[in-house]
């Protein structure tokens, strides 16, 4: 008989605890959610670069590379904001070939035959003034926005 009473008391005690502190937890939740949303919103506002026209220029040994499309026109520089479908382009560097991936407002070196693979490790770049370099192959991909004020270093 005693055991039943005790086990009945335990879930009640837990319920009482939560009920008693209900408003405290509500306050905690509101403050946590409020702080994180304000923080996320502020970061999003600062991320203006996604709204700008971003252009990527592929340079080979300092010169703009000729990358021809079906009509024989040079696709390079690429206006990344006008690309809607994912595309891949193969180019020939100094020693190996490279595969460049293009998607909306972003560019990446998807594959490269170079030994260091630093260019591949850069991944998708969607911010201006954040170049992708494959020194081994003499390839330099310059990414610019209309307003050149966003710079990434590190």
């Amino acid at each position: 008989m005693e055991k039943e009473e005790i086990t009945q008391q335990k879930p009640e005690k837990k319920k009482n605890f939560i009920l008693k502190h209900l408003w405290d937890f509500v306050l905690l939740g509101v403050l946590l959610v409020g702080t994180t949303t304000a923080y996320v919103a502020r970061s999003a506002i600062n991320n203006k670069s996604k709204d700008l026209d971003i252009t990527a220029t592929v340079l080979y040994e300092g010169n703009v590379m000729e990358i021809k499309d079906e009509h024989g026109k040079n696709k390079n520089p690429f206006i990344l904001s006008s690309i809607n479908e994912y595309q891949e382009i193969e180019i020939q560097g100094r020693h190996t070939t490279l595969t460049i991936g293009l998607k909306h407002n972003a560019i990446a070196v998807v594959h490269s035959g170079c030994p260091g693979q630093e260019c591949v490790h850069e991944g998708w770049v969607d911010r201006p003034n954040h170049p992708i370099v494959c020194a081994h192959n003499g390839i330099y991909i310059e990414i610019e926005s209309d307003n050149w004020s966003d710079i990434t270093i590190g």
Partner: peptide
Amino acid sequence: NGGQSSLGLGKTLDGKNYKVDLMYSKVEK
């Protein structure tokens, strides 16, 4: 832009400030 590691900043096109972002932070941006 001296290879990203050295920068000489003048004024920007629109008169605002440059936004210089250091990478390799675990917390992005």
